[in-house]
Design a binder for these strands. Structure first.
Lengths: 232, 232
DNA sequence: GGTTTGCCGATTGTCGACAATTTCCTTGAC
DNA sequence: GTCAAGGAAATTGTCGACAATCGGCAAACC
């Protein structure tokens, strides 16, 4: 209850609110697999463990619900969401729809700042593809590329929706335990999309994106199915 | 997971919690204009007025935030969202993207039950187009048509996202005060979309949908702009 | 033996109170 | 008269407590 007593230096200043901190903690715990699928997320237990009251925990859980990380059942509480192969495929289809629309707008309205940012992000992906970086970092770099596409579209709705569903993909990928055999290959896969975009070649960019996402979908869904059949 | 067997006449009884009731009340108040744009939505005041504590009001407000009806500012509270013409246009673009994808899937995977349901919904729209029905009813009938398209798509994400943003369109239309000059004409506008869908004519259906939504967008956005310039 | 019924512990739903923060109004200096 | 500093009032943030509800277990019944 006293997270502020005289730090004579300057701490990042907690202006972030207890709710956000709890939400971030929980989402990280879920994405990294500390909390397993279908597991109950008791308000009281979490609150006790974190040393806060139930109110902020409850609100944080509601936030995660919107991100699809937890499910809420009335009078039962929150549960770590268990995703099915079908839902996973639906998720990728949805991402394809949104990102395709975003790419179209991006090309038509001019790329602006997004061009350099995307180039930069692919470099970032290649950088963290090397040894010494954990998979979460690699997955996040991947996601950021797609996020940048939505962000640059000029329609905030695209980005907002992408953010809402991004964590679900991330969660599943982390759950599967590996993305591709090679993170370097993953980074390269994004290049054709960006190349086409920079050429203002809309059909090719859309096609490259479709190919990219469908390949990712097939890989993830297939590995997910395998995992479902023989858990651990 | 089968809530349909042994229904000898008992429906699950409205286990609707306090939160949902409050949320519905508030959203209705906003959509019907009882609460005006930008107005503060004080937790304490609402709680006092409804005779409940702040907790359910707060949760209800968070729900409305996801629907885009209210904005939340940390340490400031909830405010009835004020939408700009730009956001309105973005909203319609987003709807176009989602509904187009839904129509495509609907046609490709077979319409199933959705065909008759859509026919029925257009009839409903025509029915409430007559005198004696208020605009809210007419707008809701319109929305339901588009909602059915998303619902039938087979991808729950489409529907979920549509529901999240539908209220925003509804809100704005109500704010403007009239939809078209003639609700009858509005109902008819949906016919070409449905016709093409029933013929499994994907390009034509997509085109009809695009035309329909863009016309609606232009009308709504224009009237909205007029209203912005000379309020009341 | 198998089903129903009533209890019990645990968890969520709601509440009122207090602490922290913001907002607004007052006050005073220039 | 204008503006800044300060404080009062109002509002949100968080808390702990109590009521309502759920799932499971054991006793009671056929």
């Amino acid at each position: 209850m006293d997270p502020k007593q005289d730090n004579d230096g300057f701490q990042p200043l907690d202006r972030e609110g207890l709710v956000q901190r709890v939400a971030r903690l929980l989402s990280k715990a879920i994405v990294t697999g500390q909390l397993s699928q279908g597991e109950r997320l008791s308000e009281s237990v979490v609150a006790r463990q974190l040393g806060v009251s139930r109110a902020p925990v409850r609100e944080a859980a509601r936030l995660l619900e919107n991100s699809g990380l937890v499910t809420y059942l009335p009078n039962r509480g929150f549960f770590v969401r268990s995703i099915t192969a079908r839902e996973l495929a639906d998720l990728y289809e949805f991402r394809l729809v949104i990102e395709t629309a975003a790419v179209r707008r991006l090309i038509r309205d001019g790329m602006g700042e997004s061009g350099p940012r995307l180039v930069q992000q692919i470099e970032e992906m290649r950088r963290v593809a090397g040894p010494g970086f954990d998979m979460l970092t690699q997955v996040e770099a991947d996601m950021e590329f797609h996020r940048l596409i939505c962000a640059g579209s000029g329609n905030p709705k695209f980005l907002a929706t992408f953010d809402q569903i991004a964590m679900e993909s991330e969660l599943t990928i982390m759950m599967i335990g590996r993305l591709y055999d090679d993170a370097q290959k993953l980074a390269d896969t994004h290049q054709p999309i960006l190349d086409a975009m920079l050429r203002h070649d809309e059909p090719e960019a859309v096609e490259a994106l479709r190919y990219h996402i469908e390949v990712a979908r097939d890989l993830v869904v297939e590995q997910f199915r395998n995992m479902e059949e023989k858990p651990d």
